[in-house]
Nucleic acid binder design. Structure first.
Length: 488
RNA sequence: GCCGCAUUCGUCUAGAGGCCUAGGACACCGCCCUCUCAAGGCGGAGAUCACCGGUUCGAAUCCGGUAUGCGGUACCA
């Protein structure tokens, strides 16, 4: 797996990482992670940290590669072929470029960006394939001396042999390209920085990569890599190109149209287990009716050859559903621990522990607990500001009637000295019956007064967590507003 | 433009010649349960298997073509 730290860990990169991990674990292989940071201008240490951190968060582990972010400052890489960051392997690439130059498989190109653009525009205007015209292939020594004298620095171009390239893709089967259609592409920039197609091939050889599993967007790059592999005398790895994850409009999933950073999902309260389960099924299925699988179970069943060929739309609804399933599958203690950092410190641990069973099956994301529990940590005045008198009224009842009902409820509940949920509910129901109201209607003003909202966790459990005094005080506050409102 | 890849309910998918009048899940709708909301249970609607032609007694499944979509076509990865 070879992510490029030019952005935060992307959903697609995470899924590719997952498939690599599942494949490696399933066949008992060695999973290698390499940081592709040759694009110095766009790569940052922060992005690298984000990628490694979030991969760890998902539970994806690798056998070789940087275990911690740190750039060249010293995240110690693990594995026999360290370093696993391309920015630290430049001497190796320079040596291989020299080999290619010496053998004539590559040549210097002095063309400037402007010159190349001009040629390309001309080709496009003539409806020709835009590719390098080979100008620097026929330069004389005098030409070269002239460019040198002008201060121009040459890039290195690979001389692409015009041949048909065929390979057996793990997922797509036999694929064939005609490299005669390709122009000679640059492998080392004029500033000496080697480019992706070149370094990936060198590293794969030196790190003894046997299987390259990557996104389908690399399928048409593969013939370039194979040509380079042959020119360098390397062993050809097995390739597998997995389908793309798509925006709802079926284009390649992008930041513009979808949320793509794993860290965003993490912040929004998605569980890593749910993300992994969801991502695994975006492009693969075990063929069973069962669809809840842990990482270990996935690794046990995963077959790379069963991966689909067509892209899959990222379906947020399905992720939400799965996340809810996983939240409900957590023990109360586990959920309490995961919720703790998201909720105000003022919310006491024992209150949180009591809250969890009340909200567990009402959550889609961990962050939902914030709104479900804020009535416990906000002061009475704030909670009172969330509602208006109208919010207290069940359908068809006016303020005077509701004041009477709430007054009766308050009196009955206050008369109970235990303040336990089950007992309170019994008292509440008896009071409702005595008052001649349906329980639902009778409880509505209590709910709004106590929790500030028409939708809340179970009422009596909520009242227990809030405490007798504050619950009664909030009901008193509501009664007051009902009476003044009714009077007005 | 050129090259490549793909195409089963809105979405994720099952399906590898007869078990398919195409199964499941999410989303949607209805009912039940119910102190609100969820969760849960039950049921419903939803796919002429992109299209056309062929092979075959028989095709979603095999072959050919067409269309559409997507990806690539950088001194980005």
């Amino acid at each position: 797996m070879a992510p490029s730290p030019t952005g935060p860990l992307h959903i697609g990169t995470a899924r590719t990482s997952l498939y690599n991990a599942l494949f490696a674990r399933h066949v008992g292989g060695t999973y290698v992670l390499r940081i592709e940071d040759t694009d110095l201008a766009r790569s940052t240490a922060d992005f690298e940290r984000d990628i490694l951190d979030n991969l760890h968060w998902l539970g994806i582990t690798w056998d070789e590669g940087p275990q911690h972010a740190g750039g060249d400052a010293g995240g110690e890489d693990i594995g026999p072929y360290a370093p696993y960051r391309q920015s630290l392997r430049m001497d190796r690439y320079a040596r291989e470029a020299d080999r290619l130059l010496a053998s004539g498989a590559a040549y210097h190109c002095w063309c400037t960006t402007d010159e190349l653009d001009a040629v390309r525009r001309e080709q496009e205007a003539r409806k020709q394939a835009p590719r390098y015209n080979g100008r620097c292939l026929t330069l004389t020594d005098a030409d070269r001396a002239q460019f040198e004298a002008e201060g121009r620095r040459p890039a290195v171009r690979f001389r692409v042999p015009a041949e048909r390239i065929r390979f057996d893709d793990l997922i797509r089967g036999e694929v064939e390209f005609d490299n005669g259609l390709l122009g000679d592409f640059v492998i080392v920039r004029a500033d000496g920085v080697p480019l992706y197609h070149f370094v990936v091939v060198i590293d794969d050889e030196q790190m003894e990569i046997s299987h390259v599993i990557r996104g389908e967007d690399h399928l048409s790059n593969t013939p370039k890599h194979i040509a380079l592999i042959r020119a360098l005398g390397y062993r050809e790895p097995v390739f597998g190109h997995i389908p793309l994850i798509l925006n709802p409009d079926r284009s390649k999933m992008s930041k513009r149209k979808s949320q793509t950073a794993i860290s965003d999902y993490r912040e929004q309260g998605y569980l890593p287990e749910a993300m992994v389960n969801f991502l695994a099924f975006l492009g693969w299925s075990p063929g069973t009716k069962e669809e809840i699988f842990s990482l270990d179970e996935l690794a046990a069943r995963f077959e790379i050859g069963e991966v689909h060929k067509a892209g899959a739309v990222f379906d947020r609804d399905r992720l939400d559903y799965l996340n809810g399933v996983y939240i409900r599958g957590l023990t109360d203690d586990e959920l309490t621990a995961r919720l703790r950092p998201l909720l105000p410190a003022a919310l006491a641990d024992h209150v949180l522990a009591g809250l969890v069973p009340l909200v567990k099956e009402r959550m889609v994301r961990l962050t939902d607990a914030v709104e479900l529990s804020d009535f416990l940590s906000e002061p009475d005045e704030v909670v009172a500001s969330w509602w208006s008198v109208d919010d207290l009224l069940p359908k068809g009842r006016d303020a005077t009637e509701v004041a009477a009902a709430l007054g009766a409820a308050r009196a009955a509940l206050a008369a109970d000295d235990g303040w336990a949920a089950e007992r309170l509910e019994t008292v509440g129901r008896e009071a409702a019956e005595a008052h001649g109201w349906k329980a639902g209607d009778f409880f509505k003003p209590i709910r709004v007064a106590v929790t500030g909202k028409a939708i809340s966790p179970p009422l009596f459990g909520s009242m227990v967590l809030l405490g007798r005094e504050r619950s009664l005080a909030r009901m008193d506050g509501a009664l007051e507003r009902l009476r003044t409102g009714a009077a007005a």
